[in-house]
C-alpha cells in the first residue's frame, strides 16, 4: 500500500525567495511526523501546500492518491488541518463553528451533531460550546481549532504548532490525543518544542532553509548528538577535581565537562570518544574505587536540541529583517 501523504520535489517560491526547496518525503498510516526547524525554515509553507491553501511552484503532493492541485477537493476531504495560530471565526460560538466545519465537509445534520460531540469530548470543549470563540481563553481557542481539524475523523491530520499557548496539563492532554490518533492516521505536526518530538513523534524531519537536513526516528537523531552515550555523574564539590581526573583517565573518554550546581555538588559529564558506546559501568566503577559518593549516575541518550542547533543555521539569518519577512510573507 502506498503512503497516505506522498510529497515529491515540493518547491515554493515567493518572488525571488525560495521558501521550500525540493522536499521529498512520505508519511504512512500510523506515523506521527514531527516537523522541526527554525522560524522561517519553511514548515508552515510546506503545510499550507499539503493542505491546498497554497499551490506549489513545482513538485507534487498526493493525499490518499489524490493530487492536491488536480483533485484538490477530493484530497481536502481527507485532510484535517490546524493552521498556525488556530484562526477561527470569533463571532461564532465554538459549537456553531464546529457545525459549520461539519456542514462544509458535507456531513448530514445528524452525523454533524455526532461529530461535533465527539470532537468536543476529545478536546474537552463541551463546557464552552455555547460561548463565542472571541471570549475564550487562548488554550480553549487552540482546542477549538484542534476539534475542527479532527471533526470528520480524517485519515490525514496536519497541525501547525498544536500545543502552542497551552498550559502543561493541556499540552499533556493534547499529546496523549495525538498519540492515540496516530495509530490509524498519518499525522504531521510542527513544533518548536523538542521534547514534544521525543514524546509523540515516531519520526522527525528537520528542515532548514526549505531543505530536509535530517530525517529519522527521534532516537536516531539523538544518536547523532555528541552527548549520545555520554555519562553524567554528580559528586560532592570537594572531591570534584579528583573524580574528574580519574574519569578522564578512562579509555574512551574524550573530554569531561564540569558544572557546579546550586547545592554545592558538581555535575561531571564524560563525553565519549568516537566509536565508544558503553561508558556508564566504567565511570561508575572508577569513581566508586576512589570512594567518592555519587548522588547521580546516568547515561545520556543524546540531546535533540544540540542536534537541532548543529543542523540548522537559518535562525541566524532570520534575525536579518529580509529573511524574516520573506518567511512570514505568505498570503
Amino acid at each position: 500500500m502506498t503512503a497516505h501523504i506522498e510529497i515529491q520535489g515540493l518547491t515554493k517560491e515567493f518572488g525571488p525567495y525560495r521558501a521550500v526547496n525540493g522536499l521529498t518525503f512520505s508519511v504512512a498510516k500510523g506515523e506521527v511526523l514531527g516537523f522541526l526547524g527554525p522560524n522561517g525554515a519553511g514548515k508552515s509553507t510546506t503545510m499550507r501546500m499539503i493542505t491546498g491553501y497554497l499551490t506549489p511552484t513545482s513538485g507534487s503532493v498526493r493525499v490518499l492518491g489524490h493530487d492536491i492541485v488536480e483533485e484538490r477537493l477530493a484530497a481536502q476531504q481527507h485532510i484535517g488541518y490546524l493552521p498556525e495560530g488556530a484562526p477561527a471565526y470569533g463571532d461564532m460560538t465554538a459549537g456553531e463553528f464546529l457545525r459549520f466545519g461539519a456542514a462544509a465537509r458535507g456531513l448530514s445534520r445528524e452525523a454533524a451533531e455526532k461529530a461535533v460531540a465527539g470532537a468536543a469530548a476529545k478536546t474537552q470543549l463541551a463546557s464552552v460550546l455555547d460561548r463565542p470563540i472571541e471570549t475564550l481563553s487562548k488554550g480553549f481557542k487552540r482546542r477549538v481549532g484542534l476539534a475542527q481539524a479532527i471533526l470528520h475523523d480524517p485519515p490525514v491530520l496536519i497541525m501547525d504548532e498544536p500545543t502552542d499557548g497551552l498550559d502543561p496539563n493541556q499540552k499533556f492532554a493534547v499529546r496523549r490525543l495525538i498519540e492515540s490518533m496516530g495509530r490509524d492516521k498519518a499525522i504531521i505536526i510542527s513544533t518548536h518544542i523538542l521534547e514534544e518530538v521525543e514524546a509523540v513523534c515516531t519520526r522527525a524531519l528537520i528542515i532548514d532553509r526549505g531543505r530536509i537536513v535530517a530525517d529519522g526516528r527521534p532516537a536516531e537523531l539523538m544518536a547523532r548528538s555528541s552527548f549520545h552515550n555520554a555519562v553524567t555523574i554528580e559528586v560532592p564539590g570537594d572531591r570534584a577535581g579528583e573524580a574528574k581526573a580519574s574519569v578522564l583517565s578512562l579509555h574512551g573518554v574524550a573530554e569531561v565537562r564540569e558544572r557546579r550546581l546550586k547545592s554545592g555538588a558538581v555535575r561531571l559529564t564524560a563525553m565519549p570518544a568516537r566509536g565508544t558506546d558503553q561508558l556508564v559501568e566504567a565511570v561508575g566503577a572508577v569513581v566508586r574505587a576512589r570512594g567518592i559518593a555519587t548522588s547521580a549516575l546516568f547515561a545520556e541518550e543524546g540531546r535533540l536540541d544540540e542536534v537541532f542547533r548543529t543542523l540548522t543555521t537559518s535562525d541566524a539569518l532570520a534575525t536579518s529583517p529580509g529573511a524574516a519577512d520573506a518567511s512570514e510573507g505568505a498570503p
Binding site: 493542505t51 481536502q76 488541518y81 493552521p83 462544509a104
Partner: peptide, 16 residues
C-alpha cells in the same frame, strides 16, 4: 477573513 487568518480554514475546506 484575510486579516484574522480564517481564510486559511475556508480555503482548506473541501469547498470550491
Amino acid at each position: 477573513e484575510k486579516k484574522t487568518g480564517t481564510i486559511e480554514i475556508l480555503m482548506t475546506l473541501p469547498i470550491p
